[in-house]
Structures are given as C-alpha cells and as structure tokens.
Design a protein around this nucleic acid. Structure first.
Lengths: 337, 337
DNA sequence: AGTTAGCACTCTCGGAGTGAGAGTGCTAAT
DNA sequence: ATTAGCACTCTCACTCCGAGAGTGCTAACT
C-alpha cells in the first residue's frame, strides 16, 4: 500500500494534470502547493510512483502523467468530491421544472442539463421496455385508412397508420376499439400476437391486433440521447483532427447504447466509474465513463452517463451525475405513478 | 457573357476542383481533358476568368480555385446532372419501404438515407404546423392523474399527463372525451383556448381544453433531423481542428432549423441551391445548401436539405435531394390520406 | 535515514534557412 | 490567335540549431 506522503503526492499529480492537461513536474508541485520539501525529494517519490505503475513520463525530460492505475486509486481513495452547491442545485432543478409535457423530451432535456453541467458528453439510454398495452384507439383518417394509437403502461404512446378491409365510421371504430380493449388490456406483445393468431372471424380485428403487437415492441432498439459532444471535443485531447474524427465517429446513439452497461448491472443509487481499458470497447480505451441508473430499484428504467477523456474532473462529475439521476427518479415517480 | 470556350474551361476548372480539392493548373486541365490547345492558351483564358471574378489563385504560384461567382455559373449553366440510376433508385427506395410505422421516424430515416447517398450533412426540418385537433382521448393512469392524448389532422399525436379535480373511472373519462370531441373537433389552438375561456361549469373540462390547446401548439419549435455530420467532417475543408470545431458547433438542430429557408419559400418540385454568402448566416459563408420542400404544393410540410462545403458535387447532390424529396411526398400522401 | 543542492544529460519545440517543385505571366516568334 | 521559352514567385518539406524544461544521479548535509 502507498505511504501517506506518497499517496498525497499522487493525488496532487492527478488533480494537477486534470487541471492543466500538461505533464506535471516536481517544480510545479512544490510551487503550486507550497510543499515543505525540495523538488529533489519529490522527484524521488515520483520515481517510486513510476516504478509502481501509477504515473509515467511521455519522454525523458517531461513531467509525469497519470496512468490508469493512478486514476483508479485517485477515484477510489484520494480525490475530494465537489458536492453540488445549493445554488447549482437550484439552477439545475429549475431547468427540470420546465420539464416538457411529453415524456420523450424528458430524456433529451436531462442529457442536455447534465452535459452543460459537467462540460462533457452526457448520454441517457432508455433500453427496451417489456411493456404491456393499456389501451388502444382507432381514429378515422380517410376511407379504410385509420390511425391506430396504443397507450402502454409505462406511459409510452405509439401510433401507426393501418388499412382496414372496408371503411367504417367513427362510432363503429370506437366500438371495435372498445371490444378489443376488453380482450387485450394489460397484455404483452406475445399475448396479443397469439390472440391475433386465434382470431378467425374478423379480418380487421386480426390486422389491428397484429399492428398492436408490433407497437408494443416498437422501441426494442434502445434509444440513446446524446448531448455535449461539442464541449467534449473542445478539450485538448482532441486537438488533432484524427482524434476528433475518431470521437465523432463513435459518439453515435446506437453505438453508445450498446457500449454502456445495462441499467440492471448498476445498483440503484450507485455511481460507477469506468476508466480507460475498464471499458469494453477498444475505442473507449482513453475515455472514462461515470454512470448511474435511474428508475425503480426493482426495475431500473435507464442508464445515465457522462463520457469524457480519462483526464476527467471525477470529483466534480460524479456528484452531478448522481444528482441528475436522482432528479430523473423524482420526475418519473412523481409524474408517472 | 462568357464565350463558349471560356465557359467550357470554367466548367472544367470547377469540376476538377470539386474532384481533387486542390487548385487547378493549366497543365492539369490540358492533360486530363486532352485539350487541343497549349497550356499557355489556357493560362490566358484563366487570367481572363480571374479578371472577371470567376476564379482566383490562393497565391502566385498556385493553380486556380473557383470563386462563388464561378460556382454560381457552374450550377446554373455548365454542370451536367448525374441522374439517380435505376439501381440506386432501387437501393434508396428499398430503405424507404422498410419505413417504420411511426411517422416521427420517417424523418430521421429520410435524413439518414439522403446523407449516405451524398456523403454530406442531410437535414430535414419539420416546421411548426398550424394543425387542428382531430380527436382527443383520456386514459386513466392513477386516481385523478390522467393521460391526455390528442390526434391532429396532420397525423401528429401529442400526449401529456394531467391532474383532474377528482378521480373518474374509464367510462366517465371516455364520456367526457367524447363530449369534448363534439365541441372541438377540427378546431385550432386559438379556438380551443377561447372555448376553455368561455367554459364555466366544469373545471375539469377547462383543464382538458387548456392542455389540448397547448398540445396543438406543442411543436411550435421546428424540429430538425440531422444526419451525416461525420461524412461531411471527413472532407478536406475540415482538416484543421478549428474548422472542424466550428462546424460541429453550428450543426445543431435548433440552429439549422432557423438557418434554412421555410418550406413555403421554396416552390414545390424545385431544388434550390445556395452558395456561400447566399446563405444568410455568417458561419455558412463557406457552405453550400441544396434544398427542396416536400408535402402538398398548397401546404408544404417541411424542408429537406443537404449541406456541404462550397466545393460540393452539385451535379450529383441535386438530383438525389430531388429524388428523396419526391419519395417523402409519396410516403406522406400514400400513407396519410 | 531521509533530504537536498548541484550538475550533467536528454528530449522537445519553435524558428531560421534552404532547395526542389509547381505554376504563373510575359515576351517574342509563328 | 496561339505557342514555346523563360524568368520569377511562392509554398512545402526538410534540416539544423539553440533555448528551455525536467529529470536522475552524486555527494554532502542534518
């Protein structure tokens, strides 16, 4: 284990590097933190830290840069969290209170708020929900063309245009919808589909049921909301065109949805940090992720995460991810049940 | 006006530059197009074209680069359009036939298809629609909390959670909805709002009507679907970090929605090209836009555009924008009415 | 023991200098 | 009107070099 002073110095190196994005020299440490020892002493300690794999030099005459192992220890033991102050809480919560009426927009809003709070990429992934249908409705459009609207138990509303075998007026449609509602209220996609299969008499009932089953499954592909790509790209790690293109290439909804851990893999209330190669995907090996889940503990509804270079302000980011996750919880519970 | 040969040479310069992204020399023109005159002759013509402001030299010993005026003439008179071949039509149409059931996804699909067809940024803007409500529905959630779903005449479906003054069961809610439907079917936001204002007896009717009015107006902010940022950024004009950041900064939904022309400003079926400073916004002064509208001629539903550097393959891009716009038309008409 | 001053050593980074190459404009001849 | 020839200009890639930053090591000190 690390001795007190050595650990302290490692902490200083990491936080200094996070601040300045430049290799940290012994001189810089002594000067900026008014240490009571000489640079030579610091150099000795730095050499030891390097031997142990916490830090490294980009080249012989450069200062030290943290390695993954250094960041790891820093996050687990050394850093000080910077809690979300009252004012900041108010600012963030305020943006949430203007929450749009449509639930789909909550997510992009939350991602936006988080991204601008931490100046990095914020991602919210809402995975496939195994929902059941609560209610369906048929709206006449023109002739035999109708609009099928299905409301799910999780508040999702899906719609789709449908051709019936013959035109029906509004009341006939309402009747048909009500009849089907009696049969399928509370059913999942599989059940609805088997009902459609059994149905013999009414060809239009079959069509509506089939379409409903599809709507229940509509968002099987996880949806990801991404914000803050710009802020992240402004950081010095992307100061080469190649690095930047590489980042833009990977910061795509479908790719991130796959790369982030599933909500059920993260205990509720816990904020997990994954540094560099701790991330599964190769391209993320110089990214870090701060991730949390939201929703009910028994059935987590989604993942909320911040992505940034490994040189990330962990102590600043972590509390803010936690805070926004908690706001999401309140929003979903308060409004939805 | 330009003489035949001079115009021809300008055309060659522009298309050569579009291909290679490098200043075009007299030698290159003669060699690659087997011209029957010498480089000196070409140089004379180039000097004249430069005098007239069609082209310019980045520095004394460089070839020529088209100026805005050159691109303008090229697009209007000189270029050859590259029509969408049968195979390509099939490929594109095929992607459209897998059109998702939910109309909202049509737009991102179309943007995606277009972006990958032309290797540039594709944007679809769906502006505020002055819609009227066709139908509304109330779904019980829990106690006095209900979900209001409103279907608009343009196929939009909006929803919002609402608190009533007291709990009502399903049939009571259905009755209330049906009663209100009789009154507001076919009304726009203003009408619904004034009905809410007149209503005295039933506080919950007032609440539902107010909420409905808001839903009708819900998407006043134009929505933009953007795809292909990556492809655009890979072009040589963004080979400096600053340029790239600048681009990423501006390629945001809300900014583009504002910067592009409104659908009613573009005649249906017409594909307009805006080059460099012909675009209103400063940051777009070295971008070009190929833009078209879709929807019914009388009531255009949206704008579809491709953005790229002024050095854009106009002859290739224009027919493809036109084609995808026509597909959008077919999709909207065929399915929606 | 641990700490420190001093110093030689290494490596990067920016600027200056340079020659090759690309392309032009001009002139004089056809 | 066209063209060959040539002087001229400018860029670009390369090399060279010195200043500066930072280190590790050694020997002296507490």
């Amino acid at each position: 284990m690390l001795t007190g002073r050595r650990a302290e110095i490692l902490g200083l190196v990491v936080s200094e590097y996070i601040d300045t994005a430049a290799p940290v020299s012994s001189r810089a440490l002594v000067d900026r933190h008014h240490l009571q020892v000489s640079t030579a002493t610091i150099r000795n300690e730095l050499a030891r830290l390097e031997e142990d794999g916490y830090i490294a030099q980009p080249h012989t005459s450069a200062g030290r840069v943290p390695l993954e192992r250094g960041y790891r220890l820093y996050v687990q033991e050394l850093m000080a969290e910077q809690p979300v102050g009252t004012d900041e809480q108010r600012t963030i919560a305020h943006q949430f209170h203007q929450a749009p009426a449509r639930p789909e927009e909550w997510f992009s809003l939350a991602a936006h708020v988080l991204a601008s709070a931490v100046d990095n990429v914020a991602v919210i992934v809402r995975p496939r929900t195994q929902s059941v249908v609560r209610h369906l409705q048929l709206v006449e459009l023109q002739g035999e063309t109708v609009l099928l609207v299905a409301v799910m138990d999780d508040g999702r509303v899906e719609q789709r245009v449908l051709q019936l075998s013959q035109a029906e007026d509004r009341s006939a449609l309402a009747e048909r919808a009500e009849r089907l509602n009696q049969r399928i209220g509370g059913s999942d996609a599989t059940t609805v589909r088997s009902l459609a299969h059994e149905e013999q008499a009414d060809i239009d009932d079959v069509r509506v049921l089939r379409a409903t089953a599809e709507l229940i499954e509509a968002r099987t592909a996880a949806e990801a909301y991404i914000e803050g790509v710009r802020s992240a790209l402004e950081q010095p790690e992307f100061s080469s065109v190649d690095r930047m293109l590489e980042a833009v290439r990977h910061l795509q909804a479908y790719e991130l949805a796959r790369a982030l851990p599933l909500p059920r893999e993260i205990d509720p209330g816990v904020t997990r940090v994954m540094i560099g190669t701790e991330n599964a995907d190769d391209w993320m090996h110089d990214w870090s992720v701060v991730v949390s889940s939201f929703g009910e503990p028994s059935a987590p509804a989604g993942t909320i995460a911040v992505l940034g270079p490994t040189r990330m302000r962990y102590g600043y980011t972590i509390p803010r991810v936690r805070y926004v996750a908690s706001l999401m919880n309140r929003l979903l519970h308060g409004r939805n049940r």
